[in-house]
Design a protein around this nucleic acid. Structure first.
Lengths: 248, 248
DNA sequence: CGTCGCTTTGATCATGATCAAGGGATGTGG
DNA sequence: CCACATCCCTTGATCATGATCAAAGCGACG
């Protein structure tokens, strides 16, 4: 059973492995980053915009979102964070956190002091390279959504968002060919894509009517991946980083 | 004359210095990254989406933009690149480039092979850290514009964009208190902010009428920085990274 | 059983897109 | 030196995407 097998792998190692080959020693270090598991209930904010942090949080289990609440009261979701992601990048690398992060589901995270990550540059520079390389991939994900929000229609944006999540979930072994479990509310989708809840609702109904996509009770089921990708104008490349290991 | 003085400094060193203290040796390495100056005329594309690159380009002089042309024919400008920036991050770190980059003005860039940058992790890990730290800051700039496009009105977006550029230009000594020279066309502003040209025109007229901002012949003059910042809901923090040097 | 969190739907409104046309400045070739 | 092209800005008229406002439905849960 591949799912069970994957369940045993360190989420962080799995994420970093997407763009780099890890030595046994490096995997050990990454596992040490996961040594302080801390359970969080759903809807719990564990990074707050404006506060100062001296650590990051590795997400071991569960889904979180990174967002900002603007002065005008609206919320913009900057990204969805999956197991293996570092919550707090890049937000916590500034004088005060740039975004808030909260869980969508019951989660487990492990704090890692910033100094430990920085130390890696001295102690295990190649591992540091691999970690920072994966930060760069995360940056590409953000840029793709910037493009989507700037120039796609509401329908296309929703398609793009779903394909992004499907692909990322697959990459860490948490999605099968056509579906994944993330409790996407319509409000959340709207806040991620710059749309209102009623409009997201209409777009989702259209996708459901056309038998392209169904979201039900926290499970997203893609009925027609071709139609969805077509709508999304999706750039697969941005989830295929060069393997940094080849470059050393 | 501070301007003349700054003109002598390596653009790359100046950029990295914003978030880290550089040793003399490190500055030398950075200067070596600038050793192959290559002049480019304005409007010249030097990175093309979909092509493969094995190097980055340090921008020594001039302004460039990073963008994608979508299937529907529209263009989204992902970012504006200033002297000291690495063109090709993160776009060139993938199988094929994610974005195109072209100059807005006559420019000078210097190619740096990706392997040289990666080598730094072995040879000068602390310098590598500082460079990747600055990539992280760039990622924050992108995320801020994502937020702006997602949740601000056209007027507010334009204000935000101008304040972003003013602040970044000031950080590298290319802007005074209230103005800077970047040939922003209305089309460019629209493509950066997800707006149409006629609408950008109207917004700019409003800002001009209210004596807040004037753009004329490639020079942006901020008449009322308070009003502009107020509109922009601008998060100063994101341009004030922690000093990585303190963390070692 | 009532509240909460989320979805759904309809009616109206407005921001900003699109379409169309023209204008001014600069540059270029004949 | 003129003719024409290019690039960019400007303005107006109309349209439409998606926001806002309002209300109701509907599970799940305590």
């Amino acid at each position: 059973m591949p799912t069970a097998e994957l369940g045993l792998v360190s989420p962080l190692s799995r994420k970093i492995s997407a763009s780099a080959i890890l030595s046994a020693g490096e995997s050990d270090v990454l596992r040490s980053f996961e040594a302080n598991p801390r359970p969080l209930r759903r809807r719990q904010e564990f990074i707050t915009e404006g506060r100062k942090y001296q650590n990051l949080f590795v997400i071991l289990e569960g889904i979180s979102i990174r967002y900002r609440v603007l002065r005008n009261g609206t919320r913009q979701v900057v990204g969805v964070m999956l197991p293996g992601d570092f919550a707090g990048v890049p937000g916590c690398l500034f004088e005060s956190a740039l975004y808030s992060v909260r869980t969508l589901t019951d989660s487990v995270v492990s704090p890692v002091s910033l100094s430990r990550v920085i130390e890696l540059f001295d102690v295990q520079p190649r591992l540091a390279a691999k970690i920072f390389w994966s930060f760069t991939c995360d940056a590409a994900v953000t840029a793709e959504r910037l493009i989507a929000i700037g120039r796609l229609s509401a329908l296309e944006r929703v398609a793009h968002f779903v394909v992004e999540l499907l692909t990322r979930m697959q990459a860490i072994g948490l999605a099968d060919e056509r579906s994944f479990a993330i409790p996407l509310t319509q409000e959340l989708i709207g806040d991620a894509l710059g749309l209102s809840v009623p409009h997201v609702n209409r777009v989702l109904r259209q996708l459901r009517d056309e038998n392209i996509l169904k979201i039900k009770e926290g499970v997203v089921i893609v009925k027609d991946i071709d139609a969805l990708s077509e709508l999304a104008d999706f750039e697969q490349t941005y989830l295929k980083p060069l393997s940094i290991s080849e470059l050393f």
